[in-house]
C-alpha cells in the first residue's frame, strides 16, 4: 500500500521482523523510532553497515534472549546505545541519566500535554 519506502540497507538487518511485503513491522511506536534513528545515523555515515551488523549480532546472540524474540528491538536499542557510546558520541552514564530524566518527565506530565524533557521536576 505504501509506495514511499526507505531504501536503507538496514532493512536487511539480521532477524528484523518483516511483513509479507518485506517491510519492517513494529509492535510499538518506540521501535519504529529506534529503527528510524539508526537508518539516519547510517545514512550520515556515523557508522558503517558492517559496524552496525556486528553490534546488532553481538546483542542478538547474547545468552538469555526471549524464546519468542519479542525482545528483538530491546537488542536493537542496546546495540545502538553501545555503538554511540563506543564512538564517544555520548557516555553510558549520560545516556542513563537522560533515560531517567525522560521517565520522570513522563510521570510529571499531565494528560493532554506533550511529554517534554523539560517537564522533569528534578531537571
Amino acid at each position: 500500500m505504501n509506495t514511499c519506502k526507505v531504501a536503507s540497507p538496514l532493512v536487511a538487518s539480521a532477524e528484523l521482523p518483516k511483513s509479507p511485503e518485506g517491510d519492517p513491522v513494529f509492535a510499538e511506536p518506540w521501535q519504529a523510532s529506534a529503527f528510524a534513528m539508526t537508518v539516519r545515523l547510517h545514512e550520515k555515515g556515523v557508522f558503517s553497515w558492517p559496524e552496525w551488523a556486528e553490534a546488532l549480532s553481538a546483542e542478538l546472540y547474547k545468552p538469555g534472549r526471549k524464546a519468542d524474540a519479542s525482545d528483538y528491538f530491546d537488542c536493537w536499542v542496546a546495540a545502538l546505545s553501545r555503538l554511540v557510546t563506543e564512538l564517544s558520541i555520548v557516555s553510558g552514564g549520560e545516556l542513563e541519566h537522560l533515560t531517567e530524566r525522560w521517565q520522570r518527565a513522563a510521570e510529571a506530565t499531565p494528560h493532554g500535554h506533550p511529554i517534554l524533557i523539560e517537564n522533569d521536576p528534578l531537571r
Partner: peptide, 14 residues
C-alpha cells in the same frame, strides 16, 4: 496520566 517504559525512555534519551 503518563508513563514511559524503560525502552520508551531509552529511545527518547538517544
Amino acid at each position: 496520566d503518563n508513563h514511559f517504559t524503560d525502552m520508551e525512555a531509552r529511545v527518547k534519551a538517544l
